Simulated assay, not measured.
Amino acid sequence: MANQEWWQKYQGLILSAGIFYESENWMPITQKSDRAYGDLVTYRFHVSEPKALVFIFHGSFSAASYHTYLASRLYQDGFAVFAIDQLGHGKSSGPRGLILDLEATYTSHIEYIEKVRALYPENPPIFLAGESLGGTIALSIALKIPNLIKGLILYAPGISNGPKLSSCNIKIMRFLTWCKPSITIPKMSSDLFSRNPAHGSWWDDNPDCYSGAIEMRSILTMVDALNKLSRQLYGLTTPFIYFQGGKDQSCDPGHARDFVSSCAVENKEFVFYEEMYHAIGNEPEFPEIVDKTLRWMNDRI
């Protein structure tokens, strides 16, 4: 718990401030690919005889520490909880502000799930939870290993490219990165992601979160991943609960509603809050959302 001072002023303002996983870097995981290679930092709240195993995946340029409030609530209810910092995020290795290979991210996260599962011979059910890009990762993993996943908890997941990313704009971005691979774009103000007035400064002060300019290559990596996911998504079979805000500027609420109503999953639930922004984990409704999450999961164990 080094460098505690920075977060102390946010206690009572940010739900996760002052909450830490009991184990950090407890299981070695290395992401291996030609484009993105490095060691990942893992976290857990251990329960010897858990109701279920829950893996929480964080969003782009965020970190596992962003979701410790959710993790602690799950742990208090008898779930064993696990998290991992993506390459280039949080305490994991790799250059900040750069996402180059999400397929390798899926592979490393599946490795983590399978290694953890092997520690529990009674095979408790496995749930995946994710916010934003973390929701994209959870959905992609569920499509790859559907027989292992009992359910998904999705907090404003990325399931399609935003309206500003037209095919013309994407072509321009590809040309610009071909000319200059390291070209960057300004990051959206963190205040646009949450109504919590402390969220912006907390994100900027947080050493685990990235506040700098974003390389355009990272945006294109996510564009390609979302294009691939959108082609596969309607084949999803895993039960899920999907939380979405009506004032989300990153993920289209209309597309979210259309997906939930159209996908073939029989056991699904869509929970919509008209005034909620994108960073659900720091929105005023989140304690209520966690209550609903716990009820949904307990009903499926």
Rank of each mutant, 00 (worst) to 15 (best):
M1C: 08
N3E: 14
W6S: 01
W6L: 00
Y10V: 00
G12N: 02
G12Q: 03
I14Y: 00
S16P: 04
G18H: 00
I19W: 00
N25V: 07
M27D: 05
M27H: 15
Q31V: 02
S33L: 10
S33C: 10
D34L: 13
Y37E: 01
D39P: 06
V41G: 03
Y43Q: 02
R44P: 01
F45Q: 06
V47W: 02
V47H: 13
P50G: 00
K51L: 12
A52K: 08
S60K: 09
S65H: 14
Y66I: 08
T68H: 03
L70M: 14
S72T: 08
S72N: 14
L74A: 03
L74T: 11
Y75P: 06
F79D: 07
V81S: 07
V81F: 01
F82S: 07
I84F: 04
L87N: 01
G88A: 01
H89I: 05
G97A: 05
A104Y: 05
T107Q: 13
H109E: 15
E111C: 10
Y112Q: 02
I113R: 05
P121I: 00
E122L: 11
F127N: 05
S132D: 06
G134I: 00
G135T: 06
L139Q: 05
A142K: 07
P146F: 11
L152A: 03
I153N: 02
A156R: 03
P157S: 01
S160L: 06
S167E: 14
C168L: 14
I170T: 04
I170Y: 02
K171N: 12
K171A: 13
I172N: 00
R174S: 06
W178H: 11
I185L: 12
P186E: 05
P186A: 04
P186S: 10
K187L: 09
S190L: 00
F193R: 03
H199C: 10
S201R: 15
D204E: 15
N206I: 05
P207A: 07
Y210P: 11
G212K: 10
M216H: 06
M216Q: 13
S218I: 04
L220W: 08
V223Y: 09
V223N: 03
D224E: 14
A225W: 05
L226C: 07
R231A: 12
L233E: 03
Y234H: 14
L236T: 06
P239K: 06
P239A: 01
F243K: 11
S250R: 00
S250N: 12
A256M: 09
E266D: 14
N267D: 15
K268E: 07
K268L: 05
F272M: 09
M276C: 11
G281H: 10
E283C: 03
V290K: 09
D291S: 14
W296P: 12
M297R: 07
D299M: 13
